[in-house]
């Protein structure tokens, strides 16, 4: 086998009561690679990010980061060992300023000297002009950027992104896609959960598809849309929803 990938997830399982939110999920991401993660609502995408980022301990299987088992480690330790994430609905520290939000991550979560300075992160994400504003006064697109800024300030090597494109306008979408690609180009590994296929296409061509906690497809995005089971799951979901 080729050298160990940065992230290797092995037969991951997570139950809530009797409900299996994750059921034997396995995949890997290399340095500089973007892996898309798609699936209908409730299929376990966010749960997968929650387990990898340490908010939940896995019930089965393991998470290997740079070859070392990190499943079940506390999130602040994972943050300091270069794994970070954004949230599906952004969770900034609302009454703190944008700068303070990022400063906290830079102070506590900084694992490597390679982590960028607060100003560099703000500048890069176009938040410099908002630095002194309280997070609660930002619009939701800016709050999403702030979530991302906080994650980046820790200097992660693996970034888990949960539906960051939802609610962005077309111009913001293009910019966000560029930003994620640029991060990958610098060597960061990204797991990008996304419903918007147009956005996902812009950042990667490799996806896994989940349904009801199981992985039903791992391959190229172009092939996923022709895969009968994937199509059935999405159309079925749409039929139920509509």
């Amino acid at each position: 086998m080729s050298p160990e990938p940065l992230l290797r997830v092995e037969r991951l399982g997570k139950r809530f009561g009797g409900f299996r939110a994750l059921d034997g999920v396995s995949f890997h991401i290399d340095r500089g690679e973007v892996l898309g993660l798609v699936g209908p609502n409730g299929s376990g995408k966010t749960t997968c990010i929650n387990v990898i980022s340490g908010l939940y301990a896995p019930d089965e299987g393991n998470v290997l980061f740079a070859g070392r088992s990190v499943g079940g480690r506390k999130p602040h330790l994972l943050a300091r060992s270069l794994i970070n994430r954004t949230f599906q609905s952004p969770r900034p520290f609302l009454s703190l300023t944008v700068r303070e939000n990022v400063e906290i991550a830079a102070t506590y979560g900084r694992a490597s000297t390679a982590a960028p300075a607060v100003d560099v992160v703000l500048e890069r994400l176009g938040l410099a002009a908002e630095a002194a504003r309280r997070a609660e006064d930002l619009n939701s697109a800016h709050q999403k950027l702030l979530d991302l800024a906080r994650a980046l300030a820790t200097g992660p090597r693996l970034l888990l992104v949960d539906e960051i494109a939802a609610g962005l306008n077309p111009a913001e979408l293009l910019l966000m896609a560029d930003r994620l690609r640029a991060l990958a180009a610098e060597g960061m590994a990204l797991l990008v959960v996304e419903h918007l296929m147009g956005f996902l296409e812009r950042v990667t061509d490799r996806v896994i598809v989940m349904n009801a906690g199981r992985e039903i497809f791992d391959g190229r995005l172009a092939e996923a849309v022709r895969d009968t089971e994937v199509v059935r799951v999405f159309l079925g979901g749409a039929a139920h929803g509509g």
């Binding site: 908010l55 999130p75 602040h76 943050a79 949230f87 969770r91 991550a105 506590y108």
Partner: peptide, 21 residues
């Protein structure tokens, strides 16, 4: 103090920012 305020605002986010909650 800044870490404590972060914990108060959102313990989950604080943990992801590297704070030992």
């Amino acid at each position: 103090g800044l870490a404590l305020q972060a914990i108060r605002e959102d313990p989950v986010s604080a943990a992801m920012a590297g704070v030992a909650v």
